[in-house]
Computed example of a mutant assay.
Amino acid sequence: MSRTQRTDEGRGRLGSVLSGVAVALGCVLFLGGFAWGAVQYQPYTVPTGSMTPTIGAGDRVLAQRIDGDDVRRGDVVVFKQSTWGDLPMVKRVVGIGGDHIACCKDGKLTVNGKEVAEPYLPAGKGAAATGIPATTVPKGRLFLLGDERSGSLDSSVHLGDGEHGSVPRDAVQARVDAVAWPMDKFGMLAEPTGFADMPGGISEPGPLRLMVIAVVVGMVLVLGGAAYGPVAKRLGRGRGRAREAARVG
């Protein structure tokens, strides 16, 4: 066996080992990303347009399972409240226990006297669309509004229920991180920066981006590792024919 052949054989063995490692690592990342996502996230289909334009009727969203105590202002949450129909609903948290909610100042919602910038509302429609009476959120509860303020059955509609239209924190099942479908709206929800300067700040994004990266990298490694064998064989045959032609020449 010539030195060139021995070199090619060594490279082939090393390449086979590396491709096997790539496939194994890719499987771990790919399957691990999906498993991690299944534990952390729950898909929901939003039945109404009360969160338009952030989330439309029929949109499929991915919501991270969280404890109600982790909810902050600006979060879009999935919750169930018996007095609201006892069905999963999706609304935005605009106030937490102790907050004084009022509308409107310069057409904007105010929380504890501070105007809140809400760029996620429909164009040309501000918080004033509902004319929310001033109210204080009871301790341990949340005040929720739809982004489509003029057509949302939210806390503003339930103000006379004895709890100032609020729902208990433990009614929250998950926090929406992203829209998964339709594809033209696919992506993470924008940060509610209007609440960022308030005590407690806003929630950090969940691990969804890391999960997607793990799945994509895993898929690339699996496909790349699996493709190495056929590609290496074709290249080896090409080099062999080139050497044979050189000897004949």
Rank of each mutant, 00 (worst) to 15 (best):
Q5A: 14
T7N: 08
G10D: 06
L14H: 06
G15Y: 09
S16W: 10
S16Q: 13
L18E: 06
L18G: 10
G20D: 10
V28D: 11
L31D: 09
G32T: 02
F34R: 13
G37F: 03
A38E: 14
V39N: 07
Q40E: 13
Y44T: 00
T48S: 14
G49P: 02
M51E: 09
T54D: 11
A57M: 02
A57K: 10
V61M: 03
L62N: 04
A63R: 07
Q64N: 13
D67L: 13
R72E: 01
G74D: 05
G74C: 03
G74Q: 01
V78Q: 03
S82D: 12
D86Q: 10
M89D: 07
V90N: 05
V93W: 12
V93H: 08
V94T: 14
V94K: 03
G95E: 04
G95V: 03
G95R: 00
G95Q: 04
I96A: 10
I96K: 13
G98Y: 02
D99E: 02
H100T: 15
I101P: 11
A102V: 07
C104M: 09
G107M: 08
L109A: 06
T110F: 05
N112H: 01
N112K: 01
G113W: 00
K114P: 00
V116E: 05
A127H: 14
A128H: 07
A128K: 12
G131F: 11
P133I: 01
A134K: 02
A134E: 15
P138K: 03
K139I: 00
R141G: 02
L142M: 01
F143S: 05
F143L: 04
G146S: 07
G151F: 10
S152C: 05
L153E: 11
D154G: 11
D154N: 14
S155I: 04
V157Q: 13
H158S: 08
D161S: 00
G162A: 06
V167F: 13
A171Y: 08
A171D: 15
V172D: 12
A174D: 13
A180L: 14
M183V: 14
P192M: 00
T193R: 06
D197Y: 00
G200S: 00
G200N: 01
G200Y: 03
E204C: 03
R209K: 14
L210V: 10
V215S: 08
V216G: 04
Y228A: 06
G229D: 04
V231Q: 02
A232T: 01
L235N: 06
L235F: 00
G238A: 04
G238R: 10
G238D: 03
R239K: 03
G240E: 13
R241W: 04
R243N: 02
A245K: 00
A246V: 01
V248A: 15
V248M: 07
